[in-house]
Amino acid sequence: MVKMEIDNQDLLEMFRLMLLTRRFEEKTQELLPSGKLQDFCHTCIGQEHITVGACYNLKETDLIMPSLRGRGAYIARGVPIKTLLAVMYGKQLGSTMPKESVHHLGLPEYGILVGTGIIGSDIAKATGAALAAKLRGTTQVVLDFFGDGASNRGDFHESLNLAAIWNLPVVYICENNHTAMSTSITESTAVEDIADRAGGYGIPGVVISRNDIIAVHTAVQDAVYRARDGEGPTLIECKTYRWSVHAGLPSLESRSKEDIEFWKRKLGYPIMDLKKELMMRGILTKQEVSEIEAKIRHDLEEAVEFAKKSPFPVVEEALKHVYA
């Protein structure tokens, strides 16, 4: 199989997707105090490059299992932002929409597997989807996203072991943002790199040490290439940092402003750094950035209107589909 090389167009598109994700997350945080959202805001601000970079250029038949902070994955897979916002408003867009949180939404038409609110459990489900891919003889690869907190769940360890012994086409992507709600990784995890745990299961572990979308994309593409070629799973750890408060609730912020600034400087600014790089290479101008921003602003306003106007589900919906 030939690996896809990224060109300037790809980089511009990744920039746009990250920016769209960022602005979407900012918008939901802005809307949260209005009380109109029927969901929390587990945003991926500062981590957009991981899901966008990983999902970019996947095949349509590939599957992804987003983490709690997976908005970029939904956006990179082509899910319209108006759909995501309408779900957050508790509106009915189709049979799936009203019952599951936007954070765990399963959307078969976009190859997105349904999650749960149980941190880490979805690692086993992603592994099962990869087993199905193998048994069915497809060339599908499954990308499984989760945070540093999830890597201490038993399902992480059981699943990586199963994927290793069965040689499954799955790429485990740990978004290590160094904090599980208020618990620092230094309190929860004794190893320096979660990727080191891959060695315990006989699979490759890779560390991406900066908020660098090109590095993430390249590492994931390498792992996807391996998986598709029948060489089994990979664990990729992306060092990153959550820039915003947990669940959109300032009362849950345990970290100091200085700490957050320290980590931003240390790991880099995923969107700004790419923007600088693209401008330096002469493939993006200030004018074009303004145009992209304006388009996103317009689309978001339209999405908010769409979400507000969409109908609520009928209450009878609550009783439906308990059984097939």
Binding site: L63, S121, A124, K125, A126, A129, R136
Partner: peptide, 19 residues
């Protein structure tokens, strides 16, 4: 292996991909 939790989780995931 002895991994009962993941075994059922794997089962659920396999249903999501057509098995």
């Amino acid at each position: 292996p002895i991994s009962e939790s993941a075994m059922v989780g794997v089962g659920v995931g396999a249903t999501l991909n057509g098995m």
